[in-house]
């Protein structure tokens, strides 16, 4: 691109590339080192590898504790996602309808779960739920995780709505559609990519959440990250690597879904007059 290639510049470019690529490797290495260990025969979570085995996956699948943790995560995360997505989408639609006094403040409240340090959220909910008898309950965890996921839904749906042409809704209304019908049949299909990516964000938030869960859950509601936290702290064995590998696979699926949705959303934006 640049026609003034001096010697320094010519040397600089490869050095710079090597540096950048090594930083990118730095980002993925801790994830990649875990995967081979989950197939390792030896019973320590360390290299060198001693032989291929699926025993840690068997261990994971056969362990009552891990299975309960997985089941709890698969109960709490979808429920929290559903609540966060429903409330968040409605609010984003309301926010996109126009200006009103105090909108900044409302927005600040809706975003606040993303900003407040997790420990503070955890402690405040601990005190609050203790009074309501919601400690050590699924409901309490679902409510807490939903609150944590809400900002992501609000932000992604709000962003998607900027590319939504309001005339579609007006056209539906002028043809006699009720607001709910127009929302369901016209607006929702068009903003679906944003809603789904918001939901995925909310799901990932709940599925990875550990701090708030540590405070609010008893062993009966122990989630996958909580089980992992205990495992890393107390006995670091390759079952953790098996669990981690499955979680990495789940993240990769989430990432691919997000990427696909992003492209669809870009297409939608490109098509709309906005």
């Amino acid at each position: 691109m640049n026609h003034h290639s001096t010697l320094i510049e010519r040397l600089w470019a490869p050095i710079f590339s090597v540096f950048s690529v090594s930083m990118l490797i730095f980002l993925v290495v801790p994830i990649l080192v875990i995967v081979p260990l989950s197939f390792n025969e030896g019973s320590f979570l360390s290299y060198p590898l001693s032989g291929f085995s699926l025993r840690w996956y068997q261990e994971f699948l056969g362990s009552q504790e891990w299975m309960r943790a997985l089941r709890n995560s698969l109960i709490i995360a979808p429920a929290a996602t559903l609540l966060a997505t429903a409330l968040g989408t409605l609010a984003a639609v309301g926010l996109a309808r126009g200006e009103f006094r105090g909108k900044g403040l409302v927005m600040a409240v809706l975003i606040s779960p993303m900003i407040a340090p997790l420990v503070i959220i955890a402690v405040s909910l601990y005190f609050f739920f203790a009074q309501l008898n919601l400690l050590n309950s699924y409901l309490g965890l679902v409510l807490a995780h939903a609150a944590l996921g809400v900002p992501f839904v609000v932000i992604t749906v709000t962003a998607t709505l900027q590319g939504y042409d309001r005339n579609f809704s007006r056209a539906a209304a002028s043809l006699g559609a009720t607001p709910w019908f127009a929302f369901r049949k016209v607006m929702l299909p068009l903003i679906a990519p944003g809603v789904i990516s918001g939901a995925l964000f909310a799901f990932a938030t709940s599925f990875d959440e550990v701090v708030v869960t540590l405070f609010l859950a008893s062993p009966a509601q122990r989630t996958l990250p909580m089980q992992m936290f205990g495992g890393i702290r107390e006995n670091l064995n390759p079952t953790i690597a098996a669990a981690a590998t499955l979680m990495i696979a789940a993240s990769a699926v989430l990432l691919l879904l997000m990427e696909w949705l992003r492209r669809r959303n870009e297409k939608l934006r490109g098509a709309s007059p906005a």
Partner: peptide, 25 residues
């Protein structure tokens, strides 16, 4: 390579760092 760690559980990454950094790591 930036997004995968971004989406991966914090605990998975923590476990990875222990594997890498511990004395016998």
């Amino acid at each position: 390579m930036v997004l995968l760690p971004f989406w991966t559980s914090l605990l998975v990454r923590t476990a990875g760092w222990i594997v890498l950094l511990q004395n016998g790591g």
